[in-house]
Design a protein around this nucleic acid. Structure first.
Lengths: 205, 205
DNA sequence: GACGACATACTACTGAGTATGTTGTATTGT
DNA sequence: ACAATACAACATACTCAGTAGTATGTCGTC
């Protein structure tokens, strides 16, 4: 029997990685299945052996991208700390995910809902709902901490959803401009400084 | 003789508007030339009479979107006010542009550089450079005010480029989530609150 | 000898771009 | 003043390349 019958197999994940890379460079629509196969030194056959359609690959990339986000935030959100401190760490962790998983995060930037235009199967719509739920759930983590910060007096965000969108808007834009440079700031420095701007604000004291 | 021989003709602008709307709803790649023509009750012929290629339409939408941004920021940047006040007004004005010109701003969100993949003509590359220059110039306006704020003591942004990207990242994300709702906040309220979060920060005093 | 994991070869369609036809209006020659 | 004509502003009909998806072949392993 197979060594890993349950896991989604290594070969499958390689495809997801290659697809993320292609999506980042060329965008989803301009990426062909052959592009993804070529990046692996393989052919269409391998790709379609693991995925039903091109949309399914995008979904897999999206799901993986969200998984990285949750993995970063989950250990922080329930720490016994004031909300402002947890929010700070969650923001920093989010930036780190954006940078370390650049291709995944940038690959899905063209938007989930836009991929759902045209004739989609029933199954695709279900997956779509699920992924939308993942994203909303992640954003809800931030809203939760913001609300807790209003309650414990460490934060001042009258409109919690709007504050959440402001934060995540800024942080999610990182893949749009970040490029690894030998002489540039470290990812950690970027994370802490951006977070400071958002939480402390840009105004002088 | 014609009434408006010099202007880029009304008909041409209608195409740009329709294209922006289509790009917003379906994304650039999933939008066909026929989609744009249909939205006008016309056919391909009209579109290709005014534009050399699909890329050229995207460029026109992009240029228009940037024009709206400059129109909003230009009257503010040189006002005789402390930098923090000018930055506040520029941010608010930017949000208003995002909302009032939703289709244009969202239409160009898939990114300028990603459109330049594949075989592009010499002329396309020139326009690309020009539009990239427009965007950089606009971002430079914010960097200028940030630097002036560091100088006059009203702002505290050690890393000006990073602060600029944080601000514009948050503001440029507005078209991703804003939808006009009868019961929702007014655009003005959204603009002032988001700007307050960015400049005053989310931390309680 | 069955099946998983691919590669190869093929199909069918979509959609950008083009070539050509049509119509109304302005301009010109007489 | 009035046909002749030129041209702008489209519509219609067509081409053709690229690409998602499929059908089938191959090879190694259990």
């Amino acid at each position: 029997m197979k060594a890993s019958a349950t896991e989604p197999t290594d070969s499958r994940f390689e495809i997801v990685e290659a697809a993320a890379e292609c999506f980042m460079r060329r965008g989803y629509d301009k990426t062909t299945i052959d592009d993804i196969a070529d990046a692996l030194g393989a052919t269409k056959g391998r790709v379609y052996h693991h995925f039903r359609s091109k949309n399914a690959i995008f979904f897999a990339v999206y799901r993986e991208a969200m998984r990285y986000c949750f993995e970063a935030a989950d250990p922080i959100i329930d720490l016994p700390l004031p909300a402002i401190e947890r929010l700070t760490r969650m923001c920093e962790a989010h930036v780190m995910v954006m940078i370390t998983r650049l291709s995944f995060q940038r690959g899905i930037k063209q938007g989930l809902e836009i991929q759902m235009r045209g004739p989609t199967t029933e199954h695709e719509r279900e997956v779509f709902q699920e992924l939308q739920g993942l994203r909303d759930g992640y954003e809800a983590l931030f809203r939760r901490v913001l609300a807790e910060g209003n309650a414990d007096g460490t934060l001042n965000a009258p409109d919690v959803p709007l504050a959440g969108r402001t934060i995540l808007g800024a942080l999610n834009a990182v893949p749009d401009w970040y490029r690894p440079r030998p002489d540039g700031k470290t990812p950690e420095a970027i994370a802490t400084e951006m977070t400071a701007y958002l939480i402390r604000g840009l105004a002088a004291r």
